[in-house]
């Protein structure tokens, strides 16, 4: 998927996420980019997608920081083990729970 299309999708998902109070809808996209494309692209997308999510709700930089952390975790996992679709979903759910917990706590 083209990077600009992914970013536009992040924008729409962020607005949709705010309506349902789930701004981390962008997180699966970070996972998708990390899974299908390069880690560099995943980091950049995590940063920009995170900023998009932060603009709808929360403090700028918070989601960007967490999505970058998530992309980093995915990359470390991919280097050591095989990152299949099932592992990716489990990792994303795990990261999502942490993200939601921190976001609702601070």
């Amino acid at each position: 998927m083209k990077f600009t299309v992914q970013l536009l999708l992040a924008f729409v998902l962020s607005a949709l996420g705010t309506a349902f109070f789930l701004p981390s809808l962008v997180l699966p996209l970070v996972g998708w980019v990390a899974y299908r494309d390069s880690p560099t692209k995943a980091y950049l997308f995590a940063f920009l997608g995170g900023l998009t999510a932060d603009l709808t709700v929360g403090t700028l930089g918070f989601s960007a920081l967490f999505f970058l952390f998530s992309a980093g975790v995915l990359e470390i996992y991919r280097k050591r083990y095989r990152l299949g679709a099932a592992n990716l979903i489990v990792l994303l759910i795990f990261l999502e729970i942490i993200y939601e917990f921190i976001r609702r706590t601070i």
């Binding site: 560099t40 900023l51 920081l65 992309a71 980093g72």
Partner: peptide, 26 residues
């Protein structure tokens, strides 16, 4: 290179977080 980009974006995110907390990004 990948590591450098990662660290750069990480630092940038922390910077933005602190600046926004201080309302400098209004």
């Amino acid at each position: 290179m990948q590591k450098k980009i990662f660290i750069f974006l990480l630092v940038l995110s922390v910077g933005l977080f602190l600046l926004d907390r201080a309302h400098f990004l209004n």
